[in-house]
Design a binder for these strands. Structure first.
Lengths: 221, 221
DNA sequence: ACAATAGTGTCTCTTAGACAATATCGA
DNA sequence: TCGATATTGTCTAAGAGACACTATTGT
């Protein structure tokens, strides 16, 4: 009986310069050595409690990042996806603010717009597309996009994040109503003065109990 | 390095006597021989194109059923879930009308209400709970429940299915508006006369192009 | 004062749900 | 004709989006 190659891959997503980007790094071994690919690695049954722990470990070892939000995407499998043989990858996706990626200072880690990816090994293009679909869809009815923002952000900034993900402008009043309804943010006593020759915006942060869990709406937006 | 046990499990769900039920069968080998469990089995890298094909094969071999709708649920993994060691199960769920299960005539296959399951082996209770959550949630915004109906059904019957899954009565007018909006049904020229000392209802069937794909709404219900 | 963006009040239009009227069967 | 359920029409109320007005900064 043929063996099964069992790995985890992590789709690490962030929003930078108005565009959703995925973190890729150069593979350090065959197959596809020196090709940009998703951070991934073998499951270690001796050390990993489960595949989620394996994904956390792989992400930490390969990028230095610990993501507050990590969710299982799906499992991709089959004979054709890896030249070494029949393989199976349990994929997880993470959303982080761009500063977190930059703060770890890994020169081999690079960000790439998800719309213009080329030359990806294995079935990584398909996996990334599935992750992007999931994120965009989930953004349409949940607070998921807050994980793309840093510790403190303004409502106009958060709205811009939603608009990029959904690909369309959102009504300001409706948007604020929804966020109010989610009840996950609290104002910080202090305002964002920096940018502006205009009225400064209130800074908000996630309430503690929502650092790792999201709020969903039964309606859209 | 320890080996990984890689299997697929299938959560076969149906609606019978006003209650969502899962198909279980007695395990024919250790561990947990003779205990009721989900249909499952090892992945065959030599024969299965991918895990979905493996799930289809396992379902067919163990129950004789070929389900039009089969979707990946999630992958469950870890050291504690199988006494044989670190294991990993890619789980798929299927929705079928009860007649399909009865038509295959497997006496070892039995249906059990998902609310009152006891004594399940491995982490099957958790897996089934996840599948039920997924089905109920997806039913709130999609045409998924039609797969629980047979080839022909009336709108009041379909509404009853939705109401059982959602656990609450639905407004008749709104429900019909939604189904109309999905645009997946076509009337059959003939009416359901059987039940009744009352006006018979129009029979509908799924349009051909929706036999294996569902329609979703961006709003609820 | 002016430009620019933040934040809020209000109106309208869409749409989900309530209610009810009509339709069609068996007894 | 009566009882029961199917089907359709219409009114109402909740909610989303449009619009516009006020607020607060830097220049």
């Amino acid at each position: 009986m043929t063996d099964i190659i069992a790995t985890v891959d992590v789709i690490l997503l962030t929003l930078k310069e108005g565009c959703l980007r995925v973190a890729l790094l150069k593979r350090d071994r065959e197959p596809y050595a020196n090709v940009l690919a998703l951070p991934g690695g073998y499951i270690h049954p001796d050390g990993d409690a489960d595949t989620e722990a394996a994904a956390e470990r792989v992400l930490r070892e390969k990028t230095g990042i610990v993501s507050p939000y990590l969710e299982q995407l799906a499992t991709f499998s089959g004979r054709g996806r890896d030249p070494r043989g029949w393989s199976l990858s349990i994929c997880y996706y993470a959303l982080v603010p761009p500063e977190l990626i930059e703060s770890v200072g890994r020169p081999d880690l690079s960000l790439h717009p998800v719309d213009t990816l080329r030359g990806l090994p294995f079935d990584h293009a398909r996996i990334i597309a599935a992750a992007v679909d999931r994120v965009k869809n989930k953004s349409s009815y949940s607070s998921l996009p807050v994980y793309l923002c840093g510790d403190a952000f303004t409502l106009p900034q958060l709205q811009a994040v939603y608009e990029i993900l959904l690909g369309e402008p959102i009504n300001k009043v409706s948007f604020r109503r929804k966020i109010e309804e989610f009840d996950i943010l609290e104002p910080i006593q202090g305002v964002l003065a920096t940018g502006g020759a205009h009225r400064p915006a209130q800074l908000y942060r996630l309430k503690k109990q929502y650092r790792k869990c999201l709020s969903v709406s039964d309606r859209g937006l």
